[in-house]
Design a protein around this nucleic acid. Structure first.
Length: 270
DNA sequence: CTAAGGACCTGTCGGC
DNA sequence: TGCCGACAGGTCCTTA
């Protein structure tokens, strides 16, 4: 479900509610997530002050006085700000009880999400190999062109590879390739530098625009306040099979590339 | 090394 | 109406 803009939406929603507060307790109801939650984790973080809320790719970093909690929302996860007393519902796997009477509640039907603790989160094995942030200065045309050189993988798979760039998932990979006018199946190594520049600009612009609209809600994404995102109405190609291209009118097509549904305009994208 | 496919889970939707 | 397969916003791990 959540890609970078959705995780950033959650981060921005929670930040003012938790930073500076004390983490009273961590209540784990279902430890069987993508990786089992370490049972020793609760004792380790309880009583610590929450210093900041950061994001790296699709990971949320809850930085504490010492170390940090690392949360990933997987495909179906959400973090909601709720009253501490409220009864947990199905798939509410853990609560972070915050000073006062509030809690941050993690819900995840598919359990592809995860919760870790690390003294230095950026050195954690899951984060240490991540590529640059797509909205950061290190992600530019020189970089992307260099890492695409000689590669035969589809450009869409390449930009969805978190070791290449962190946080671009299926929706925004599709959406960025459209304004860049690049066919999603084109071999990464067979794209000119000029067009790679367009792609870098498109990735940035699509992500920023999605963040401004609170992310994309297709079915069930909600921010920390329970509200959906509104970027769906801005989608140019994703989930628009058969509908007219917004640029030329040609019906949008879908095909599977790298196991993922890929939407594109066969006339505009080469 | 690269690339492709399977695996992990539950919920929902479309077709028969 | 009911059942069954296909598919869903992620990504690690194994295999070739």
């Amino acid at each position: 479900m959540p890609e970078l803009p959705e995780v950033e939406t959650v981060r921005r929603g929670l930040e003012p509610l938790v930073v500076g507060k004390r983490l009273k307790s961590l209540e784990i109801r279902e430890p069987r997530l993508r990786w089992p939650i370490d049972p020793a984790l609760a004792a380790r973080v309880e009583g610590q002050r929450i210093e900041s809320l950061d994001r790296r790719g699709k990971y949320l970093l809850i930085r504490l006085s010492a170390g940090a909690l690392i949360v990933h929302l997987g495909m179906s996860g959400s973090l909601r700000h709720v009253a501490a007393r409220s009864a947990p519902a199905l798939h509410d796997h853990f609560d972070l009880l915050i000073d006062g009477s509030a809690a941050i509640r993690f819900n995840d039907p598919r359990r592809f999400g995860s919760l870790h603790y690390a003294d230095e989160p950026l050195r954690h094995p899951l984060l240490s190999g991540l590529g640059p942030e797509p909205l950061g200065a290190a992600f530019d045309a020189d970089y992307l062109h260099a890492v695409c050189r000689g590669r035969k993988v589809a450009i869409k798979s390449q930009i969805m590879n978190s070791r290449i760039v962190a946080g671009v998932g299926n929706i925004y990979a599709n959406e960025a390739l459209f304004p860049a006018r690049i066919h999603p199946a084109r071999a990464a190594g067979r794209i000119s530098k000029r067009r790679i520049e367009d792609l870098v600009a498109a990735i940035r612009s699509v992500l920023e625009s999605a963040i401004r609209q609170g992310g994309t809600t297709l079915r069930d994404f909600v921010g920390s306040d329970g509200r959906p995102g509104y970027f769906k109405q801005s989608l140019a190609v994703y989930d628009r099979e058969g509908e007219p291209c917004r640029r030329c009118g040609e019906p949008i097509r879908v095909r599977v590339i790298g196991q993922r549904a890929s939407y594109y305009c066969p006339r505009c994208q080469r």
